[in-house]
């Protein structure tokens, strides 16, 4: 009995201590109002009404638009240089970070300025780069070479069969010779699975009926 009572007492004291510490933490909490200078000043009278402010801002943006071409040319140069480096296997480990940064910049500025096509292209590039490490598509930037360089397990055909539901063939524009040589398969033997991952077609997939190309 005495043995059983001891642990009970110990747990009680522990619970008490925990409650005490909780109380201490609660008493340390401070909630207070702050009226910052921004809030005071922004609430002054004489401000610009919303509609007028937005219209003025859009006019200002239109003026900045004139600098866009030169900035865009600079961004493209950065991209071209980066792609060359990656294709030549000279790029650093953080090349994807750099590419992501520039593609986001392009998307954000193009969207704000209303360049819809550029925003769409840059947005697609952002999505592709964001979806790495499963990325193995290139669009028009030579990314299959990147993908092949990455040596990702998904690319080496080690994907479990259950996950390899074939949806469609990889479009020819997304394959390059290097990728094909690496796997030693014909282009039509490289497939994407349900998650958009690419790899060589396995025997089971050759008989797969949900492939629209078969």
């Amino acid at each position: 009995m005495a043995k059983a009572a001891k642990p009970k007492a110990a747990t009680k004291s522990k619970a008490k201590a925990a409650a005490k510490s909780k109380m201490a933490v609660k008493s340390d909490v401070r909630v207070f109002s702050v009226d910052t200078r921004f809030q005071k000043m922004a609430r002054r009278e004489g401000g610009i009404p919303r509609d007028k402010a937005i219209e003025q801002a859009q006019n200002e943006i239109r003026e900045v638009k004139s600098h866009f071409d030169s900035w865009f040319a600079g961004e493209l140069k950065v991209f071209v240089r980066l792609i060359k480096k990656v294709e030549g296997a000279k790029a650093g480990k953080d090349w994807i970070k750099t590419a992501n940064f520039h593609s986001h910049q392009l998307r954000d500025s193009a969207t704000t300025l209303g360049f819809e096509l550029l925003a769409f292209i840059a947005g697609s590039l952002c999505r592709i780069l964001d979806s790495r490490p499963t990325m193995c598509l290139r669009g028009n930037t030579g990314a299959p070479a990147f993908a092949a360089n990455q040596r990702h397990p998904l690319l080496s055909g080690r994907l479990p069969l259950s996950a390899r539901r074939v949806i469609s063939r990889v479009p020819p524009c997304l394959c390059n010779d290097r990728l094909i040589r690496r796997f030693g398969f014909a282009r039509s033997n490289i497939v994407t699975d349900a998650r958009g991952r690419t790899g060589p077609r396995t025997r089971n997939e050759s008989n797969c009926t949900n492939n629209p190309d078969q």
Binding site: Q56, E60, W71
Partner: peptide, 18 residues
Amino acid sequence: DPSSYLSMLIHSMLRGFG
């Protein structure tokens, strides 16, 4: 913001707001 152009865009918006 690390991007000079985006900073410029935000700056121009703020100018528009007064």
